[in-house]
Simulated scan of single mutants.
Amino acid sequence: MKRTASQLADGREIIYFDHDSAPLRELHDPRSLDPVSTASQMRHDPVLDEWVILASHRQNRTYHPPTNDCPLCPSTPDHHTEIPSPDYDVVVFENRFPSLSMHAVGEDVPGLPPLVESRPAIGRCEVVCFTSDHDAAFATLKPAHARLVVDTWADRTEALAALPGVAQVFPFENRGAAIGVTLGHPHGQIYAYPFVTPRSRQMLGNAQAFHERTGRNLFAEVLSGERASGDRVVTTSSHWTAFVPAAARWPVEVHFYPHRRVLDIPSLTDAERDDFAELYLDVLRRLDGLYDMPLPYVAAWHQAPVSDPSREHAYLHLQVSSIQRAPDKLKYLAGSETGMGAFITDVLPEAVAERLRSTGS
């Protein structure tokens, strides 16, 4: 992998991740850009014991531009984008409209209740462009290119985890307008949070309690149980298993677990990374074949927190979830889900797994 770092016109970092045979990239950004906002703040909800990030400047972020004005496509002499080069394999850059920033100063907020703490939203938000091809998708990448994305995730996880104040690194992909994606170019993001997220705190708290009761790892037991049953396994390989969890919340939900327990993406071996790329592409194509349409989804990597004591109970895994419950129907978070956090699903996990197995790739 060839790694080339530079800066955009407003000082944001950009990093090219190329195959070894790739040519040198154009690094100069000729645009004139306004400074990036540093006003992000976060407030603590004392009732739920959760941090909420406020980034009002994101209301003005780029929203569904026409294809010929896509900011994630390579630059041309007539159209300068976020990527100065005329081509690229994979590229990462700091988000121009970040929810979190290492330069965040927040704002003094008069009148907050005494129990509500406010802080600058220190952290970092990066955009990961999977390919220069605007009309592609992760599912259409070749295995060697998908492996390059995995190596990119590993590189950025290590780099972001080393930043002062970062507590958790979260690579993810939002795909499809139904999910809320505002840019059609195939891309994902990485958030470096200054706190351990509520979902991770709950999972790792349960894993710690399970270990104290049994001496075993909760995630490893879940994987073992699904592999032994096989009813919800979509596909398996030498190093990974993809399955629909028995208590899936979403109409389509697939979890990807490595057979060897590791804490984060950088800990994966070359063989495990290669194997994941092949298996992931297979499942993504099955997902697109489920309703014979590009499935909208969120792909979320669950990695161990950077230094939290709960880190030792973590187990790296990827969760892909979709709100598409039928070709023409979406799953909305209505009263029970939004008000109480109690999910009600209209489909059986076993039925979804069987359909994905029969769909093939």
Rank of each mutant, 00 (worst) to 15 (best):
D108A: 13
V347A: 14
L279V: 09
A137Q: 13
N95I: 01
C125G: 03
P84F: 00
T67M: 15
I190H: 08
D49H: 14
E126Q: 11
S267F: 04
V283A: 01
T359H: 06
V127T: 09
H187M: 02
E221N: 08
K331P: 00
K331R: 11
L33F: 05
A192F: 03
M1L: 10
H302S: 05
S361F: 13
A351D: 15
V254K: 05
S21P: 06
R273V: 00
A326L: 02
A154V: 04
D135Y: 14
V91M: 03
I179V: 14
V105P: 06
G111E: 11
G111F: 11
P186T: 00
G165P: 04
V149A: 05
L141V: 02
E126A: 02
A55R: 02
W51M: 02
Q7F: 15
I14T: 00
R147N: 12
S32K: 15
V149E: 07
H134R: 14
D20K: 11
C125S: 10
L268T: 01
D155K: 09
L163V: 01
R58F: 04
V234T: 05
A137Y: 11
R285G: 03
D45T: 04
L281F: 08
F17R: 02
P66K: 07
D10Q: 13
K142A: 15
G176A: 04
P74A: 03
T338R: 15
R147T: 08
D108P: 07
H185Q: 05
H19Y: 07
A178S: 12
C70D: 12
A247P: 04
R201H: 09
A22F: 14
A299R: 10
R260M: 01
D231P: 04
Y280A: 09
T38L: 04
G230Y: 10
E50N: 08
A277P: 05
G335Q: 14
I265E: 08
T131K: 05
H211S: 09
I265W: 11
T62Y: 10
T38H: 14
